[in-house]
Measured scan of single mutants.
Amino acid sequence: EPLWIRPDAPSRCTWQLGRPASESPHHHTAPAKSPKILPDILKKIGDTPMVRINKIGKKFGLKCELLAKCEFFNAGGSVKDRISLRMIEDAERDGTLKPGDTIIEPTSGNTGIGLALAAAVRGYRCIIVMPEKMSSEKVDVLRALGAEIVRTPTNARFDSPESHVGVAWRLKNEIPNSHILDQYRNASNPLAHYDTTADEILQQCDGKLDMLVASVGTGGTITGIARKLKEKCPGCRIIGVDPEGSILAEPEELNQTEQTTYEVEGIGYDFIPTVLDRTVVDKWFKSNDEEAFTFARMLIAQEGLLCGGSAGSTVAVAVKAAQELQEGQRCVVILPDSVRNYMTKFLSDRWMLQKGFLKEEDLTEKKPWWWHLRVQELGLSAPLTVLPTITCGHTIEILREKGFDQAPVVDEAGVILGMVTLGNMLSSLLAGKVQPSDQVGKVIYKQFKQIRLTDTLGRLSHILEMDHFALVVHEQIQYHSTGKSSQRQMVFGVVTAIDLLNFVAAQERDQK
């Protein structure tokens, strides 16, 4: 057995438009009618409502009807409940999964919650491996369901041993009777949507819809739904939504950006999952974080739909894509998950301010006199920076000697690579993860907040409520011999709460 199987392995699926269902090699399930009293909570997966979006479509000038398939009504709160249950049931049916076995899954959280929910009911041990950027709410729900959680670096490539995929496979090879159901490759993922989600949409719309818009992560949702719609409703256009920084969209030119990270969760990847059939997507749109969270908040405030950030991405694209539809036509959007997962993220004004998705003037509360002053007023001194090749031991000596707790790590040209902190280095040394002679590049981390000289002290204040420091950066445009230009970030300084307090105190003292 291989040590790991690539999540982007070539698909062996034989589905073709027009091929009889009787030739399918898979076990198919028909939607079942729910009894009045459910035998367990797993029976509350599927049969989610279709809700008309009344205000947002009109606000953006849509002539067509805009409908939302509300997947956050599933038992675990997301569309991923469907595939989690289906993968477990299919693994039980073919004898792969037996009582007492362990389920391991690399996930952005929602599939993990679905699997942990099913594992709690069915009696399996469950280990979820997820990147650090995923919300604390997801972690809390997983723990409450009895799952064990392993976190991995957000910026690790999918084929790196440190990625959530790599760590999951390492655990599988170490733990007896453990299984990775593997949402990236498992046919049960798109089949769950082909058999149930798509049929529900067709039934709820009486077979009449002209466009379907869905955000894409593993691709199982859009693949399964689109294949069924292509068979039953061939005139329906399928629109895929991919965040900026991901590479799922086609044509490839759409993916060209210097951005590699994004805040919206559960969609987009740096590889093409095996289950994603991009041939059934008629057109791709890219979405960005700001519009995703703005539209998610709009869905909550104006439509009462308590959905997550990827739902915002989907609707932001839908109001663009559906401009081509006329009166009497219908566009369906998939709202994948609930706001429950993001209470401390985009639902929080403070978080939105820190990330730059909300401006101070958007909030009406009274601010102190210094709130709208610029960061450049602080008069920061030149920063202490270190090269990635310097040793951890030497870096600790320098920081202690100069009285700093942290320093930016830059390359020879001064471009920011990340940050090192005294606390992080000492804990890594004590844990045996690094040696004093190791290069400081081994303990770089990139989960820090950046701020510009033109940003306000109010925004800085919000950042420092949650973080010990902020890195002050400025952009530099560099022209190359080819005539092309590129933008790079340079370090201007490091600012802490002490710097802000000293500035405010000094100004008030001078005024007296």
Results as ranks from 00 to 15, higher is better:
Lys283Phe: 10
Thr385Asn: 15
Val332Leu: 12
Val386Trp: 05
Val472Lys: 01
Gln406Ile: 08
Glu377Leu: 10
Gln406Val: 01
Gln376Ala: 01
Val504Lys: 10
Asp499Ser: 04
Leu387Asn: 08
Val472Tyr: 01
Val472Arg: 07
Gln256Arg: 13
Leu453Thr: 09
Glu290Leu: 14
Leu306Gly: 05
Tyr262Val: 05
Gln302Asp: 12
Ala292Leu: 05
Ser427Met: 01
Glu361Gly: 10
Ala413Arg: 10
His372Ser: 09
Leu353His: 01
Gln478Tyr: 15
Thr389Met: 14
Asp455Ser: 15
Asp405Gly: 06
Gly268Thr: 03
Arg350Ile: 07
Gly309Ala: 07
Lys355Cys: 06
Thr496Phe: 12
Leu422Gly: 10
Gly432Arg: 09
Ala407Val: 12
Val494His: 01
Trp284Ala: 01
Lys446Glu: 06
Thr260Ala: 06
Phe469Gln: 12
Val491Ile: 13
Asp349Cys: 07
Gly441Ser: 09
Lys320Cys: 08
Glu377His: 06
Gln326Leu: 01
Leu422Phe: 11
Ile477Leu: 14
Arg488Ala: 11
Glu475Ala: 05
Val317Gly: 15
Gln447Asn: 10
Glu365Ser: 10
Met298Leu: 12
Pro388Leu: 14
Lys442Leu: 13
Gly441Arg: 15
Gly312Ala: 01
Gln435Trp: 09
Thr421Phe: 01
Val420Tyr: 12
Lys355Val: 06
Val332His: 01
Met490Val: 14
Asn288Ala: 12
His474Ser: 09
Ala318Asp: 01
His480Thr: 09
Ala322Asn: 06
Ser381Gln: 07
Gln478Leu: 13
Phe346Ala: 04
Gln256Thr: 07
Gly423Leu: 08
Val472Cys: 09
Ile463Arg: 07
Thr294Asp: 04
Leu501Asn: 07
Ala407Leu: 14
Asn424Gly: 13
Lys433Asp: 01
Gln447Trp: 10
Lys442Tyr: 10
Thr344Val: 01
Thr389Leu: 09
Arg350Trp: 12
His474Thr: 15
Thr344Asn: 01
Leu306Lys: 05
Gly245Gln: 01
Pro408Trp: 11
Asn288Tyr: 14
Thr391Tyr: 05
His372Ile: 09
Ala470Trp: 01
Gln450Trp: 12
Leu453Ile: 13
Gln259Asn: 07
Ser287Trp: 01
Leu464Phe: 07
Glu291Leu: 10
Gly266Ile: 01
Phe293Leu: 03
Gly356Asp: 01
Lys512Cys: 14
Lys345Ile: 05
Val410Gln: 13
His468Phe: 12
Asp438Tyr: 13
Phe346Asp: 05
Leu429Gly: 10
Gln329Tyr: 08
Val473Ser: 12
Gly266Ser: 01
Gln376Val: 06
Leu453Glu: 15
Glu252Trp: 11
Ser428Pro: 13
His480Arg: 09
Gly418Pro: 04
Gly309Phe: 01
Gly328Val: 10
Cys307Asp: 04
Gly308Ser: 01
Asn341Ile: 01
Thr344Ser: 04
Thr257Asp: 10
Glu397Ser: 04
Gly493Phe: 14
Asp277Ala: 07
Lys402Cys: 08
Phe469Met: 04
Ser427Leu: 09
His462Ala: 13
Ala296Pro: 03
Trp351Gln: 03
Leu254Asn: 10
Thr391Val: 14
Glu253Ile: 11
Glu291Thr: 08
Gln507Gly: 14
Ile444Val: 11
Lys286Thr: 01
Gln487Asn: 12
Ile390Glu: 07
Thr456Cys: 09
His462Leu: 11
Ser481Tyr: 08
Asp411Phe: 08
Met419Ser: 11
Ser428Ile: 14
Asp289Cys: 01
Leu422Asp: 08
Ala407His: 01
Asp510Gln: 01
Phe271Met: 06
Glu508Gly: 14
Asp337Ser: 06
Pro336Asn: 05
Leu363Cys: 14
Lys402Phe: 08
Thr454Gln: 09
Gly356Thr: 07
Gly308Met: 05
Gly245Ile: 01
Glu252Ile: 06
Leu325His: 01
Val264Ile: 14
Thr364His: 09
Lys320Arg: 06
Ala311Arg: 01
Met419Leu: 12
Val375Pro: 01
Val333Leu: 13
Ile463Tyr: 09
Leu417His: 13
Gly266Phe: 05
Val280Arg: 13
Ser427Ile: 15
Asp282Cys: 10
His462Ser: 11
Gly245Phe: 01
Ala497Val: 10
Val332Ala: 11
Asp411Arg: 11
Asp499Pro: 13
Glu303Leu: 08
Gly308Leu: 01
Leu380Val: 15
Leu254Trp: 09
Arg452Val: 09
Ser287Leu: 12
Gln447Ala: 14
Glu258Trp: 10
Glu265Leu: 04
